[in-house]
Structures are given as structure tokens and as C-alpha cells.
Design a protein around this nucleic acid. Structure first.
Length: 957
RNA sequence: GGGCGCGUAGCUCAGCGGGAGAGCACCUCGUUGACAUCGAGGGGGUCACAGGUUCGAUCCCUGUCGCGCCCA
């Protein structure tokens, strides 16, 4: 028994429980052991995350595919899990400690702190998993993995060690993006360039050997900079070798103001003659470009900042080397000062001494940390790097060859662009929450990388015994007792970039390296569904790691979906306050409505601007379906065993079978091509505009009438089409369809495990062509399986379509006319069919009941010519007349006819323009020319009938 | 500066070589045997602009203007 009103919240909870109880989403269900697998890896959400609208879209699309393929009989594995999100999680826990006024991370110590993070995870992490369940995500939840769980951690270590052994991971001292707030290095991708309005300071650097005179430009060189405070670390001034203004100065030296250091003027292409003064200060330790210039000219790298971005001059050997005496004042004043405070002081001092030429307003891109939001400092440190360039090569080739394709294809360009210019990937982070790097150092700084501490220690001790740095006895002691070696061998403190472990997600979640069974069955996965914002962070790296360790791409297809924006197209963000909370939408409209909205709006290659009115509209759609099912139930519609829709006798029933099969094909083909919006649109139109608007309406007279074979068949067909609808709609609206499935009949199983109506793809033109080629013996094509639709799947009935189509169009035309003529619904108008053949007469008799009801007609009769004063309609070549003498406004009808005639004339004129054009007839394809001729004939016939109608109208006056 | 994409009905968007479409909004009408979370009907667009290719351009090409996003 179907409830009177549709209440999503209640249904959703019950259906989720039903799926859970059945274990419906488990991969490797016994009855599917021989089925072809279908695998999707969820993009693991952050453990700190909560469901935002982007997740809702991403997971809806994955779920649509998973449910679709599950119904098509595949052994579906949708692998769920979460990412430990190094920085984000550590920040959350540190904030919590602060709020609770507990000791901070450093006070607490590493071990204690990590315990607290795990405790936090147990208590409040992973909120998002339950939110995904509310959305209806059909993941195999028992297989949930976490990037920091034991198995995945082991895999991470193994990968690190192997890549290190292969020389693809190495340690290097170079400039990194340093976050002075989080006190860690971050990768290029975690840096956001933000346009900042600032200044360009023009500074005078006095030439060596002449007396500095602000009034005499010959005594100095002007450099322009956006970061005056870094001048403390300058080790050269660069000018362009082509620049005539400075050519004579190359090789000379300047005295660094305030500091007193002598630094050279070098010639380098990097200096842009158009920019600033054409001369640029070079600070190799604090700027990526300057670093390269410094390398080319062998300049010293003078780091003048500490890890927090404060000026560090005291005891700074690099800074103090070769400095003249008497600069202690500066050291004392600036030491320990924040970089931005120091900037002010330095500019002031420069001005005091006449070294400041001018300040120009200047807008430039300034790097910011995407997590901390502070200005990133290029900083010289030792870090671990992945040789991304080497790993990228096969990953590029795989996309070039088509082993992996992007949908939509244009993202391949973005992928290639980045991969071909890829930089070393900095993977070490100065954090605690994450996979600690499996590297140990001896007292001389030598690195020992191994999967376990025992192994690393063993290697190290062996090495130092060999080198006579310790005795074999000392070595044995240290091997036995960790305390004894504590000061001798120490482990690298750093952890790995979070994306390092997520790069391995497609195979580590399957049990690699411990267990190969699932890897063999489910790798490579079938498709990756993700947003373009993580193509670099994640997709590219999975490609690299998958190819390197599995020797195969992780997925043959990458479906890139849009970003969800607010109604106005702005990116949603907390600070803008324009965030649409999907959970609110679920509460208000139901998960099914939200899912359908997202799928319907997921047109390829477009951003989604989400309007809640759309969600509301699709909630109404769910209600519509609900009521249609109630209607069927009230009329005793049930599907008899062994019902065959292709053997229906009633035209109406043959028609809905025809339409259902067509809709099935449309939905199936759209889903196969990842055209989610087309699939959603097709099922929407079919349910509402075909099944509800016409089929049920046309079926009413039969169903309300006395029992008969026709009634029985109709009841069966109503139920059959309803069931087909529930199946087709299930991937999009799983909850309501599962509920309706359960309450409309005694079912042997859950809808979610039911067979999809169309097991095999019905052939497209291309496929037919390929089949023809295969038949002709093309060896490349021949091995393709020949997919042939069964009779039921290929069912079509043009005759039924012609009949019902005519009825539908006739009713529509009459309704339209009545509305235009302002005829009240209470007035029943007679209908006269003019010159009707026996066929048409029979049709009219068959449908007289519904026509009378739906078009508000009185008698239906036949005549050879229309009565005077009748309004005439032309539907599919048949003339219908409504004798409305005295009822209608003749002037209005004349106006209507005049408009129609003008339209027909317009059509004739346009077609004639083409047909009299010799070039058109000569060049256009025959079928187009034929089409145009038919169009002309139709228009001419229509015109003639309209003329007649106009004549008749005269008699009405 | 380089790349990608977008300008189609009031709004959100499909369509992408042969007669301009949907949903929402709007207007009119409706207690018709599931559904007012509904039904019936209707108005509304030089498909940004300018050239070119073509028998034919909203669709392909070039340019201009406007708007996003990504990378320097």
C-alpha cells in the first residue's frame, strides 16, 4: 500500500537499512563471482571534511554509474575511504588543543600528539562517510580504507624505498615554497598566486670606488624591487647583456647599502630591460629566478630569514662573511624582526641615507599558502623530491596512445601542458601527522633508507663498523638497544605529502603489496570521476604511480566533471557566505531530488550554477512519480507472471511499449557515454510527458470500465511500464524507486540488484558499420563482440505510434484552439472529422471516450466537407472541424487563420528559395533535397486547407 | 604573456552544418475519476558583434568586444 504523500526522509532511512541488510553493495557477491567487475575508486575525502556540494555532485555521478552497472550485472566495487589530510588535520587538532587551553603540540611531543590526532579521528573524524551514505552512495562500506591505516602505510613505505633505490626519490638542497606559519615546505601546487597591490621600490646601489652622491646618477645604479627587505641577502645586481645603459658597468661592483657588502654587477638575460630600471637585485636564497641566476654566476646564497620569516642576522655565517666592520647596528636592530616590519625599517633607512630613489605603485602576483593563507617564502632547505619528470613520461604516453582518455577530451591538453613541464615534486613536510619518511641518518649525515627500522639500523651499523667509527661490539649493542643508538642514528623527522599516499590509492586499497587477489580482479579500475581542480594534485600522480608499480594505467577513462558554483556563478566559499549545504537540501527536498538535479545539470564541460528552484522542481518530479504509482495501485495494476510487452494487442499498450523501449535506449546510451544530463532528461520526459500525461490519461477509460481482456492487458501494461521506469530511474533516484519497488508488488529481491531493462547496447550507426566491417572480414574489427538486441529490446511499433500520436496531437490542437477562442471548459464542442478514411473513422471511434474527456468534446461525427462557420484544424494530414458558429469570436478566428497562412506562406517561400537555387539542388545531399520537397508539399497542402477554412468562416457571419 | 572555456527566451542551461529547444519565472484558465509538490493553454530570442568558408552557418574558420578559470 502506497502512502498518500511522498516523504523522503522516512523512505531514505528505511531503504538505506534494506541495502545494508542485504549487503547489496558488497563487491564479489557470490552470484556475481563470474561477472565482469566494474570498479570505481572514490576520490577519498579529507578525514576532516564534511559534505559540500562538490562532493555531492562527484559522488552522485559515481553512484549513478555504479548502480547502472550493478543492474547490468557487473560485480561492482566502489571503493570508499578517506584521506588523512596531513596539514588540515594537524591544524584542526592543534586548534582544538588551543581552544581547550591544553599544552601545544611541541610541548606535548610527537608521540603524545599523534595519539591525540588518532583520538580526534575516532571521535570526530570521518563525519563525511555518514553524509555520503545519506546521499545514497552505494560504496562497499565494509572495505573502507584510510590512507594512514596499517596496510596503506606499509605500501607507502615500500613505494618510497623502491623509488629511492631506483633513484627516483632523492634529497636535495634547493629553494622550496616555505610556509612561515605552518613551518613546513609545501609543493608548487599548494601555492596560490594572488594579485596584490603593492609597491615597486627603486633603490640606489652605490658603485664601488666613487663617492655616492644622490644628485649624481653616475655614482650609483638603480635597482627596482618588490621586496626591499631581501636586499640583506643580495649577492649581485644583474643587467641585461644587450642593455647599452649598463654595458660599461658589467664586471664592476656595487656597495650594498646599509650592509656594506661588495657585490658584482653581472650580465644576465633574466634582467628585463623594459621593467623597472632595467637593473635587478639578485637574492639567490630568497627568489626562484634569482636562485637560477645565482647558479649561473656562481653567487653565494645568503639566507637572511629564519623559518618563521623573521630576519636572522646574528650568528648568520653566510651573512656575516666578508662584511666590513661597523655594521653591527643593523644586525642588532633587525635581528628577530618580522619580514614585513623589517621591510618598513629598511625602506626608511634607505630613504634616510638617500638610497631611495622613488616608490611606484605596483601590482604583482604574490605566492600564498593555500592552507595558511600567509605569504610563502622561497627558502633554502634540504627536502625530499620525487623525480616527477621521469615518472611523467609513461603517464604522458598512456594518454597520447589512448590507453587512458579524458572525458571530455579537452582536459587532455591541460594534462599534457602540466606533465610536460613538470617540476621535481617536493614530498617532505615538516609536520607530524602523516607517513614518516623511512630514512635514518648516521652521525656523519649519511642516509639509510629501508622499509623497517631494524633493516635501516642494520645497514647503518654495518656501514659504520666497516668504517671503524664504532666497534663491532658497540654496533651489536646499538642494534639491540634503541636507547644506546639514540644519539647515533636518528630517523628523519619529516612526513610525506598527503598526496603521496593518495597517488597510490587505486592499488593500495586493493591490498597491494600484501595480497594480489583483488588487485588482479579489480585493477585497473574502470573510470575515475573527479573535478578538474585535482587533475594535477591527484589524477596525474595516480597515473605516474600506477604505471610505475602496476605496469598499467589505473583507469582507462577519466571523467572530469564541473565545479559547482552558486546561482550567480561565483565559486562557493565560506568567506563569501554563498555555500549551499547539500545536507540542507537533502533535509528539505530529499536526497533523490538533489541527486537528480546534479545529474541533470552535469552537462559536460560546463560549470554548474546551482539554483535551489531546480531541486524543488525535481522533488516535484518525485512526487509525480509517487502519485502515478498510487494511481496504478488504485486501479489494480499488477504485472502477471510471464507478461510479454511485445505481444500486447491493444494499440495504446503497444504504443507505450514502443515508447518505453525507446526511452530505455536513450537512457542507456546516454549513460554509456557519460552524458548524465541527457540520461536524466530522457527519463524525466518519459515519466512525466509520456507515461503520466498521456498513457495514464488515455488508459483511464479502459481501466475505469467493465472488466475485459483489454482492461486486463492495460492493467498489466501500466504495471510493466511502471517497473521499467523504476529501473531506469533507480541510478538517479535510488531511494524512492526502491521504496516504490517494494510496495507495488511482492518482489523476490531489491530493485538495486534487479536487471537493467537493456542488457546490451542497441546498435548505433557506427556500431552497425563496424559490424558490417567485421562481417566483411576486417581482422581488426572482427574480435569485437557482436551485440545484438533481443526482440524485446529492439521492439518498435510505428503503426501504434501513428495512431496514438494522432490522438495526442489532435487533443492538443483542440485544447489550444479552445483556449485561444476563450471557450470555457464547461462548453462541450462537437467535432467533425472531414473526409476521414475507414481507418481514421475506426481510430476516432476507438478513442472517442478520451478525446471527449480530454478535449472537452460533445459528439464526434464524420462529413465530407466542413460545415459553414466551422473552425478547421489539420493534424497529421487529417482535417478536423469544430462547428463553433455562434460560440466563437469570428474576428479572432480570422486573425488566427491569417497568422497560420502567413506562416505557411513563409515556409513555402523559404523552401522555394532553396529549391530554385540550382547550386542547392546540385550540391545538397539527395535526402535533404527530398526533405525540402516534402516540406514544400506539406506547406502547400496546409495552405490550401487554411484557405478553405477561411472560406468556411465567411459562412459563420 | 600562454592555455582552456563561455556569451542562445527574464533566469539557469541544452542544441553545435539543413525548419530556434527545456526547466524555472511570467500571464490566462481550471474543484474534469493519481497528483494544486497538480492540470490545460500562452507570450517571449537580428542564437554577443564583424568578416570568411559553404548551395546553406546559432553551429565550422578568422578577428573584435565582454565574462570566467588555469598556468607564468
Amino acid at each position: 500500500m502506497i502512502e498518500k504523500t511522498y516523504q523522503p526522509a522516512d523512505i531514505e532511512a528505511r531503504m538505506a537499512a534494506a541495502w545494508e541488510a542485504e549487503g547489496a553493495f558488497k563487491a564479489g557477491r557470490p552470484e556475481r563471482r563470474d561477472a565482469e567487475p566494474f570498479t570505481i575508486m572514490i576520490p577519498p575525502p579529507n578525514v576532516t571534511g564534511s559534505l559540500h556540494i562538490g562532493h555531492a555532485l562527484n559522488n552522485t555521478l559515481q553512484d549513478v554509474l555504479c548502480r547502472f552497472e550493478r543492474m547490468r550485472g557487473r560485480d561492482v566495487l566502489w571503493q570508499p575511504g578517506m584521506d588523512h589530510a596531513g596539514i588540515a588535520t594537524q591544524m584542526v587538532v592543534e586548534r582544538q588543543l588551543m581552544e581547550r587551553k591544553e599544552p601545544g603540540r611541541r610541548e606535548m611531543g610527537r608521540e603524545k600528539f599523534l595519539e591525540r590526532v588518532w583520538q580526534w579521528k575516532a571521535e570526530s573524524g570521518g563525519l563525511i562517510i555518514n553524509q555520503l551514505k545519506r546521499l545514497g552512495a552505494s560504496c562497499d562500506w565494509d572495505r573502507e580504507r584510510f590512507t594512514m591505516d596499517e596496510g596503506l602505510s606499509r605500501a607507502v613505505v615500500k613505494v618510497f624505498v623502491e623509488l629511492h633505490a631506483q633513484g627516483l626519490i632523492y634529497k636535495d638542497k634547493r629553494l622550496v615554497n616555505w610556509d612561515p606559519k605552518l613551518l613546513t615546505a609545501i609543493s608548487d601546487l599548494e601555492v596560490q598566486q594572488i594579485e596584490v597591490k603593492g609597491s615597486l621600490w627603486h633603490l640606489r646601489y652605490p658603485l664601488q670606488g666613487v663617492t655616492f652622491d644622490p644628485a649624481n646618477p653616475a655614482t650609483y645604479i638603480v635597482v627596482a624591487t618588490t621586496r626591499p627587505e631581501t636586499m640583506l641577502g643580495d649577492s649581485a645586481v644583474a643587467v641585461n647583456p644587450e642593455d647599452d645603459r649598463y654595458r660599461h658597468l658589467v664586471g664592476k661592483k656595487v656597495v650594498l647599502p646599509l650592509v656594506g657588502r661588495l657585490i658584482p654587477i653581472v650580465a644576465d638575460d633574466y634582467s628585463d630591460m623594459e621593467k623597472g630600471s632595467g637593473a635587478v637585485k639578485i637574492t639567490p636564497a630568497h627568489d626562484f629566478n634569482d636562485f637560477e641566476v645565482g647558479r649561473r654566476h656562481n653567487l653565494p646564497q645568503i639566507n637572511i630569514l629564519d623559518i618563521e620569516g623573521k630576519v636572522a642576522l646574528a650568528d648568520n655565517e653566510d651573512y656575516l662573511r666578508d662584511l666590513p666592520v661597523g655594521t653591527d647596528d643593523l644586525v642588532n636592530e633587525l635581528h628577530g624582526m618580522d619580514r614585513f616590519a623589517a621591510r618598513k625599517v629598511i625602506v626608511q633607512r634607505m630613504e634616510d641615507f638617500g638610497f631611495l630613489e622613488k616608490i611606484e605603485p605596483h601590482t604583482s602576483m604574490v605566492p600564498h599558502g593555500d592552507r595558511s593563507g600567509v605569504v610563502i617564502e622561497p627558502y633554502l632547505t634540504d627536502q625530499w623530491y620525487v623525480d616527477a619528470q621521469t615518472l611523467a613520461r609513461p603517464a604522458i604516453a598512456a594518454v597520447r596512445s589512448g590507453a587512458t582518455t579524458f572525458v571530455p577530451k579537452n582536459w587532455e591538453k591541460t594534462y599534457f601542458e602540466w606533465m610536460e613541464n613538470i617540476q621535481p615534486w617536493c614530498i617532505s613536510r615538516q609536520l607530524w601527522w602523516g607517513h614518516q619518511i623511512p630514512a635514518w641518518y648516521g652521525p656523519d649525515g649519511k642516509v639509510f633508507v629501508a622499509e623497517t627500522e631494524e633493516e635501516a639500523v642494520g645497514k647503518a651499523l654495518g656501514y659504520y663498523v666497516e668504517k671503524d667509527m664504532i666497534t663491532p661490539e658497540q654496533g651489536a649493542e646499538m642494534a639491540r638497544d634503541p636507547a644506546a643508538r639514540a644519539d647515533f642514528i636518528t630517523r628523519d623527522e619529516d612526513v610525506l605529502d598527503t598526496w603521496f599516499s593518495s597517488a597510490l590509492w587505486p592499488f593500495t586499497t586493493l591490498g597491494w603489496p600484501d595480497d594480489a587477489t583483488d588487485v588482479a580482479r579489480y585493477y585497473p579500475t574502470n573510470v575515475l570521476v573527479t573535478g578538474f581542480d585535482i587533475i594535477f594534485f591527484w589524477v596525474a600522480r595516480m597515473m605516474m604511480m600506477g604505471l610505475h608499480f602496476m605496469k598499467d594505467v589505473p583507469f582507462p577513462t577519466i571523467y572530469i566533471h564541473a565545479l559547482v558554483r552558486d546561482e550567480k556563478g561565483a565559486k562557493m566559499s565560506k568567506s563569501k557566505g554563498n555555500v549551499i549545504d547539500p545536507l540542507n537540501l537533502i533535509d528539505t527536498y530529499g536526497a533523490d531530488a538533489l541527486r537528480f538535479t546534479l545529474a541533470a545539470m552535469a552537462a559536460q564541460g560546463r560549470d554548474i550554477k546551482l539554483a535551489t528552484s531546480r531541486v524543488e522542481g525535481y522533488r516535484n518530479f518525485a512526487t509525480k512519480l509517487w502519485n502515478a504509482c498510487r494511481f496504478a495501485e488504485m486501479n489494480g495494476c499488477a504485472l502477471p507472471a510471464k507478461f510479454d510487452h511485445t505481444h500486447a494487442k491493444e494499440t495504446l499498450n503497444r504504443w507505450i511499449a514502443h515508447e518505453t523501449v525507446a526511452a530505455t535506449r536513450e537512457v542507456t546510451e546516454a549513460l554509456e557515454a557519460y552524458r548524465f544530463n541527457d540520461a536524466a532528461g530522457a527519463i524525466y520526459r518519459f515519466v512525466w510527458n509520456v507515461y503520466c500525461d498521456w498513457y495514464l490519461e488515455l488508459a483511464k477509460p479502459v481501466m475505469m470500465g467493465a472488466d475485459s481482456p483489454a482492461k486486463a492487458e492495460t492493467q498489466a501494461m501500466v504495471a510493466w511500464a511502471r517497473d521499467e521506469i523504476l529501473k531506469l530511474l533507480h541510478p538517479f533516484m535510488p531511494f524512492i524507486t526502491e521504496e516504490l519497488w517494494a510496495v507495488t508488488a511482492a518482489r523476490p529481491g531489491l530493485l538495486t540488484l534487479e536487471d537493467w531493462p537493456l542488457a546490451k547496447t542497441v546498435m548505433s550507426a557506427e556500431r552497425l558499420q563496424m559490424m558490417a566491417m567485421a562481417a566483411s572480414g576486417d581482422p581488426l574489427i572482427a574480435p569485437l563482440p557482436l551485440l545484438v538486441p533481443t526482440d524485446a529490446e529492439g521492439f518498435s511499433d510505428p503503426a501504434a505510434e501513428a495512431e496514438i500520436g494522432w490522438v495526442v496531437e489532435l487533443i492538443t490542437a483542440i485544447r489550444s484552439l479552445r483556449a485561444e477562442m476563450n471557450i470555457t471548459p464547461a462548453t462541450l464542442t462537437p467535432l467533425v472529422l472531414i473526409g476521414a478514411s475507414d481507418d481514421i473513422k475506426a481510430r476516432a471511434q476507438r478513442w472517442s471516450d478520451v478525446m471527449k474527456r480530454l478535449a472537452r468534446l460533445g459528439d464526434i461525427s464524420f462529413a465530407d466537407r466542413a460545415p459553414d462557420g466551422a473552425v478547421q484544424l489539420l493534424v497529421r494530414g487529417e482535417v478536423a472541424a469544430l462547428p463553433l458558429k455562434g460560440v466563437i469570436d469570428v474576428a479572432a478566428e480570422r486573425a488566427r487563420l491569417t497568422k497560420e497562412i502567413a506562416k505557411a506562406d513563409g515556409d513555402i517561400k523559404r523552401v522555394d528559395a532553396k529549391l530554385t537555387n540550382e547550386k542547392f539542388v546540385a550540391n545538397a545531399p539527395d535526402e535533404i533535397v527530398e526533405e525540402e520537397k516534402t516540406k514544400r508539399a506539406d506547406a502547400v497542402a496546409r495552405r490550401a486547407k487554411l484557405d478553405e477554412a477561411m472560406e468556411r468562416l465567411k459562412g459563420a457571419e
